[in-house]
Design a protein around this nucleic acid. Structure first.
Length: 104
DNA sequence: GTCGTGACCGACT
DNA sequence: GAGTCGGCCACGA
């Protein structure tokens, strides 16, 4: 087994283009329903080459402070993910089912 | 070994 | 919709 962060990164690396996952989904997919907070911590380590911008909070909103949020939004829009007037993503449409799709 | 911190979540008011 | 509260775990000082 590897560290929690390693598993988080591995899962995020599997998120297909044009889709997103939520911190909660990641936590549950890793068998830690209450571990969303650790996912946030793991994201802070954010290795290069990881599609970190495909990770949103449970409300479909980006949770990065400052410019990171704007960057994340534009990167997603670049992949075809649409944001509504409230800066939220339609999770019912773009959410990647990590619990069902994540392998290993 | 202990304490504080964190890109969160769900339930409740 | 917005604000508050408790809970969970890993990491660095």
């Amino acid at each position: 087994m590897q560290g929690f962060a390693q598993r988080v990164f591995k899962l995020i690396a599997q998120v297909p283009e044009g889709q997103v996952v939520t911190y909660g989904s990641i936590a549950r997919a890793l068998g830690e329903p209450q571990g969303a907070r650790m996912v946030g911590w793991a994201m802070h380590q954010c290795p290069e080459g990881l599609p970190w911008y495909r990770v949103l909070n449970s409300q479909g909103r980006v949770s990065l402070p400052g410019e990171g949020g704007a960057l994340q939004r534009s990167l997603l829009e670049d992949e075809g993910v649409e944001f509504d007037e409230r800066d939220r993503v339609d999770l019912a449409r773009y959410l990647w089912d990590a619990e069902a799709e994540y392998a290993e």
